[in-house]
């Protein structure tokens, strides 16, 4: 009979419509912004800088090596190195950035900057609500806006942060062990110098 196909289709639509009242699967919509879907662990939106010990100036992990600036495909990172140096987590003196700007109207969230950073300093955030009225200045994030504490990083990406923390703790332990070995090697040399009587 002509029309059986259409009737079968209508039955299908009816099943979906009535089923949306009873089963969770047939009603996939979420009433944003009152309800939000849970964020996935690996999701990424824009980069941010990590700092340790709740000190955004001295605890900033970034050493201004300029690798992320060079590898960024649309070249949206702008770094100016500071003239002074500050100690990093192992105690070695490193450079640090005076200016660190990211233009998020250009950034395409590709995550290459986070991938190539050798110091676990720049990672991907999950915040996406950046709309602002100012097209240029409002979408240019400076170092103060980008720097976020390590607790934030551990909250949004627990497994990655645990790995990064383990790596940094290992480097710190190695540096301390080397320093202790160097100090122990100096002491016998001191005692063996004759004539330095106190």
């Amino acid at each position: 009979m002509l029309g059986t196909g259409i009737i079968k289709g209508m039955a299908e639509t009816a099943r979906n419509f009535l089923g949306s009242y009873t089963s969770e699967e047939r009603l996939p919509t979420v009433q944003y912004p009152e309800e939000k879907l849970p964020a996935k662990e690996n999701a990424r939106s824009f980069p941010f800088l990590v700092y340790d010990r709740n000190d955004p100036e001295l605890g900033l992990r970034c050493v201004a090596c300029l690798i992320c600036e060079k590898e960024c495909p649309p070249q949206c990172i702008y770094i100016v190195k500071d003239t002074t140096k500050k100690p990093d987590h192992t105690g070695k003196l490193q450079a640090h950035p005076k200016t660190f700007d990211i233009d998020i109207s250009v950034c395409m969230s590709c995550q290459i900057c986070a991938e190539v950073c050798p110091f676990d300093a720049i990672k991907m955030d999950i915040e996406y609500a950046f709309s602002t009225g100012d097209r240029f200045e409002g979408l240019l994030l400076h170092k103060e806006q980008l720097a976020k504490p390590n607790d934030h990083y551990q909250k949004i990406h627990p497994t990655e942060a645990a790995e990064a923390d383990a790596r940094l703790a290992e480097e710190k332990a190695k540096a301390e062990a080397k320093a202790k070995a160097a100090a122990a090697a100096e002491k016998p040399a001191e005692m063996a110098v004759p004539g330095s009587v106190r």
């Binding site: 600036e69 250009v106 240029f136």
Partner: peptide, 10 residues
């Protein structure tokens, strides 16, 4: 046009 973070030839 104006660009906040120009590099190299830009």
């Amino acid at each position: 046009e104006y660009e906040p973070t120009p590099h190299d030839d830009v």
